[in-house]
């Protein structure tokens, strides 16, 4: 049957589009002369036509909905992972924020002791820090967990955390502060609550970053 294996090979290469013009001419020339090969080639082509004419099979309509129903619901872990991968900047920001809150919180609850920035000539009576009359404090003053009484002068900024500003044992509200006996030549900060403390810490942090 296979009159010539070589030509059968050429036929298949022809069907795969692998023949160049010269080879194609050789095959054509042979087919014109050889009846057996012509029949073989004809049968091959007919076979391909047969294959392509096979019945059309229709899909069950429910296929796509069945697929969708059976999709695994994503595990939460995978979901988060995907989200983190997709938003690296937000992830970094979130981690930064969590750490930040943690450190602020711990520094808030850490000490309830009276803390005063180191300046000379301050008088401490119990929980009250007094700047005595006629005394000038040359720098900034921070009082934490205690009250402050100003009779003298403070050249720098004043910050009171978790405490009050007193005048001779009386409370002085901030509005009348400028009229007080003592003098503050810098900024005055009064921090009393936790959220204010957070705000204050952040403000200082960013100030620090920008001045740096």
């Amino acid at each position: 049957m296979d009159c010539n294996r070589e030509y059968a090979q050429l036929m298949h290469q022809y069907l795969d589009g692998d023949l160049n013009q010269r080879e194609e001419a050789i095959l054509r020339l042979h087919l014109e002369g050889c009846e057996v090969c012509q029949k073989h080639f004809h049968e091959l082509k007919r076979t391909l036509t047969f294959i392509q004419s096979t019945e059309h099979i229709s899909v069950p309509e429910s296929l796509s909905s069945k697929v969708m129903q059976n999709l695994p619901t994503e595990k939460k872990q995978v979901k988060y992972k995907r989200w983190f991968k997709a938003h690296p900047v937000l992830t970094a920001a979130a981690i930064f924020f969590v750490l930040m809150i943690g450190s602020v919180f711990s520094s808030w609850s850490q000490d309830s002791q009276l803390v005063v920035s180191k300046q000379e000539n301050l008088v401490i009576e119990g929980d009250t820090v007094i700047v005595p009359e006629g005394i000038t404090v040359p720098g900034d003053l921070l009082v934490k967990n205690g009250d402050l009484m100003v009779k003298g002068t403070i050249e720098g900024d004043v910050t009171i955390v978790n405490g009050e500003l007193l005048e001779d044992g009386n409370m002085l509200d901030e509005e009348s502060f400028t009229a007080s006996v003592g003098e503050v030549n810098g900024e005055f900060n009064h921090v009393d609550q936790f959220f204010e403390w957070i705000w204050y810490t952040f403000k200082n942090l960013f100030k620090g970053i920008f001045t740096f």
């Binding site: 899909v59 296929l63 697929v67 979901k79 995907r82 997709a86």
Partner: peptide, 21 residues
């Protein structure tokens, strides 16, 4: 890939004929 399941349905509908056959 971003996690949108409903987009996958469109893919299924587009390919289901060919894959099923």
């Amino acid at each position: 890939k971003k996690g949108d399941q409903s987009s996958f349905e469109d893919i299924v509908i587009y390919f289901q004929n060919r894959i099923y056959q």
